[in-house]
């Protein structure tokens, strides 16, 4: 079974959005690529107006799920229900009512920003003056009115990303699907992109479903589903999920982490695991443990020691025993990350 343990922590109130059926329900999605299972009975629901994230490491099946939803892939099994009606993956009404932002750029670099947007408008059947009006509107939205006649290939990474987002909103979709929307963006572009998405959500009745392997991105959601090996292993409010990790997270960098972990387990009867070459300890009142660790271990054994409040990345570690992977900023140097993200939402 896949949908293990759907809501473990304290009761999670669904966000106050539409009372009707969920906008999108994905039931029992299964798929295998040449015998290798990538989706194993994956199910979730996205309520109207919700910001819903699929969090998991690369290759966990989240992008495949989005490919099914956008009609690029027909799964081996499973059912999609959109707006109360069962639909085939990629059914026209579904495609008409959703906007998609891909992980990879999807703009024609040789056409200008305006031409790309007009092209997209035509693909959604929007033509003539209506198309001009919409193009002007989304160009403004993307803050690119001044660059409308520049070839897309000459825009910066952040600008291209904003243009991708603008393109996806061209036809005023109800559901916005984004696959790793901030891949490759630096910290400031990341923040700006999300400010924009959250703003859009407030001003338009937009439901957003996105995939990410970045905990701080998943933290922005109303609800997160943690995906591992093609199934949802936990789902709920990011705060509630974070509370599954009881205390603080201590990270010790050392030259021989396995040895150090064994030593700590022995001396302090604590669970210590080795992740990406560092020893990780989950502990309530972590600050009290720090001086004891430092005193007890011979000098030079620990290269660095840091503490942070649990993030969704730590939840993933707790649930799977593995790390979220190459998520860059998962090991904050000073533990400020935990407080940083919710400021957006």
């Amino acid at each position: 079974m896949s949908v293990v343990d759907t809501m473990g922590g304290p009761a999670i109130a669904a966000p106050t959005v539409g009372s009707a059926a969920p906008l999108l329900a994905v039931n029992g999605l299964r798929h295998a690529f040449s015998g290798r299972s990538v989706l194993a009975d994956l199910s979730f629901q996205v309520e109207r107006g919700e910001l819903f994230g699929l969090l998991g490491p690369n290759g966990c099946g989240k992008s495949t799920t989005l490919r099914v939803l956008t009609g690029l892939l027909v799964p081996d099994g499973g059912e999609l229900v959109f707006d109360g009606q069962a639909v085939e993956p990629g059914a026209r009404p579904l495609r008409q009512r959703m906007g998609v932002v891909f992980q990879a750029p999807s703009l024609d670099p040789r056409l200008t920003a305006r031409e790309n947007l007009k092209l997209s408008a035509s693909l959604y059947g929007i033509v003539g003056t209506e198309a001009d009006r919409r193009v002007a509107e989304v160009l403004g939205l993307a803050d690119l009115s001044q660059r409308a006649t520049d070839p897309t290939g000459e825009l910066s990474g952040g600008m291209k990303r904003r243009l991708e987002l603008a393109r996806a909103l061209m036809h005023d979709p109800e559901l916005l699907i984004m696959d790793e929307p901030t891949t490759g963006l630096d910290e400031s572009a990341f923040r700006k992109t999300w400010e924009r998405i959250l703003e859009l959500r407030r001003t338009r009745r937009l439901t957003v479903l996105f995939s990410t392997h970045r905990a701080e991105e998943a933290q922005l959601c109303d609800r997160v589903a943690i995906v591992d090996r093609g199934a949802i292993i936990a789902e709920g409010d990011p705060e509630a999920l974070r509370q599954r990790v009881s205390g603080d997270i201590l990270t010790l960098e050392a030259s021989e982490p396995e040895q150090l972990a064994a030593q700590i387990e022995q001396r302090f009867s604590l669970a210590a695991r080795v992740l990406k070459g560092a020893v990780v300890i989950e502990r309530e009142q972590g600050h009290e443990l720090i001086p004891r660790l430092v005193e007890a271990l011979p000098t030079g054994r620990i290269k660095s020691l840091s503490m942070h409040r649990p993030t969704l990345a730590d939840v993933f570690v707790k649930l799977t025993g593995r790390s979220l992977g190459d998520a860059g900023p998962e090991q904050p140097a000073d533990g400020e990350e935990a407080g940083g993200a919710p400021g957006h939402g």
Binding site: T70, G71, L72, G90, R92, R95, Q96, M98, V100, F102, A104, P105, S106, L107, D108, P109, S120, L123, Y124, G125, R167
Partner: peptide, 14 residues
């Protein structure tokens, strides 16, 4: 490969 076609394929046209 550039991803342009994906955007065309997810649009409502057949």
């Amino acid at each position: 490969h550039s991803g342009f076609l994906q955007a065309v394929l997810v649009a409502p046209g057949s």
